[in-house]
Simulated scan of single mutants.
Amino acid sequence: EKTLPLFVGIEQNEQLLFIPAGAKFKGDFKKVTKVSIDRGTNTLRFQPQKAGFASLLIYNEKDQKIYEFRLDVQKTNYAKVAQEIKALLSDIEGITIKIINNKVVIDGQVLQTRDLNRIIAVVGQYGDKVASNLATLSPILQRKIAQAIANDINNPEVTVRAVNDKFILEGSVNDALEKDRCEAIAQMYVPDIVKEAGENAGVIVKLKKTFVLNLIQIKAAAPKDPGKIIQLVVHYVELNKNFEKGFKFQWTPTLSDNSGVSFSSDSRSPGGVVSSITGIVSNLLPKLNWAKQYGHARVLQSSSLIVMDGQKGDLKNVTKVPYVTANKDGQAITQ
């Protein structure tokens, strides 16, 4: 048993599981509608003629009832339906409501998915024989969502743009964690997907695709600070003993104290006591040139070593001294 809402002047098809070859039609349906059969598709075609209530019963060859339909045929006032739909959808911008080919048609572009869902729900209340929805989501919506994603990411080095229902993230970030954060934010803004008429009918098949394309690059890590370079210069010096005793030659540096206290007072700064402590290190290295000039010193060797701060550096100076030994035959051998 099934109740069928029909409208005068609008054909409607009803798909059945099967229609027996010797099917019999009974009831008072003829007073409100004409009925025809398409046995190739097991379809009943109703052509309502008059408003009213009627019944249609279908029996098989053995006079057993297999289908029962209650027909509710109503007159359709399309102008009234259009006014009702306009009242229900008055808060949605970007759509037009017209009466075309004995049907109320809603067309246009909306900015929000929830607006499109509301239009679909309203059209469903009247049935697809009375009202039809051709409204779609506006491309402007994609650009607005892309701007909202960029604002939420809040990174001047990351840009977001919308292309063919996709959101493309581009730019560079410092690490993978920041890259994943940008993609997660974009995923939250992806709107619901609404199938179009061609997809519902199976005429158009859309492949699965990623709606957020993350093309953000991770910056190369900055090179580590190489650290300080220390240069060590070593002089091997031979001094005359008389020079060392007579002039009390010292290798250690000396520090002279030049500290002092001064008073200041002018229009630019208040008066007060200013103290300063300074020192000068002298004789850090022996005056080798003077000593060499007068024959008191001789530089045997100078070596230089450069190492990184915190690393170990080795400086070796090896001198081979020959000496004489005898072999088993008593011959002298210099080694």
Rank of each mutant, 00 (worst) to 15 (best):
V307R: 08
I19C: 09
N154P: 02
K30A: 15
L169D: 06
F167N: 03
Q49S: 11
L215S: 15
F247G: 01
D309W: 01
N42Q: 11
A162G: 08
K228C: 00
K328G: 10
A79D: 15
F211K: 13
I145C: 04
K34R: 12
V307K: 07
T3A: 07
V281W: 15
V203W: 11
I280D: 14
K166F: 01
K248C: 06
I37L: 12
T41E: 10
L315P: 08
E196S: 09
W251V: 10
K80Y: 07
G52R: 09
E68N: 13
L141M: 14
G202F: 08
A332C: 01
A222V: 12
Q112E: 15
D192V: 15
A87R: 11
D266L: 05
V273H: 05
I277L: 10
T254I: 15
I95H: 02
D115Q: 10
L88N: 14
F243V: 06
Q301F: 08
L284R: 13
V8Q: 05
D175Y: 09
G272T: 07
K24Q: 14
A82L: 05
N200M: 13
Y78G: 01
K316Y: 10
G40P: 01
K287W: 04
V105A: 00
A87G: 07
L288W: 02
A54V: 03
Q15D: 08
N258D: 11
S269R: 06
V104K: 00
A148V: 04
Q83K: 11
L111H: 01
K80P: 08
V233S: 07
A21G: 09
Q74G: 05
Q74C: 00
L177Y: 09
A146N: 09
A146M: 03
A51S: 13
D28G: 06
L137N: 02
T254Y: 14
A131P: 00
N133G: 02
N283L: 09
N240G: 04
V205F: 12
D266Y: 08
R39D: 10
Y126D: 01
V123W: 04
I145E: 05
G310P: 02
Q331W: 03
I306W: 05
I85L: 02
A54R: 01
G227F: 06
E68S: 12
V130S: 00
I92C: 07
A148D: 14
V190R: 09
L56Y: 03
W251R: 11
V122H: 03
A291P: 03
A221V: 12
T3R: 09
S262Y: 11
T319H: 13
P5E: 00
M188E: 14
Q187K: 15
D175T: 03
G271L: 12
L207C: 06
G171L: 12
L57Y: 08
K316F: 09
V212H: 06
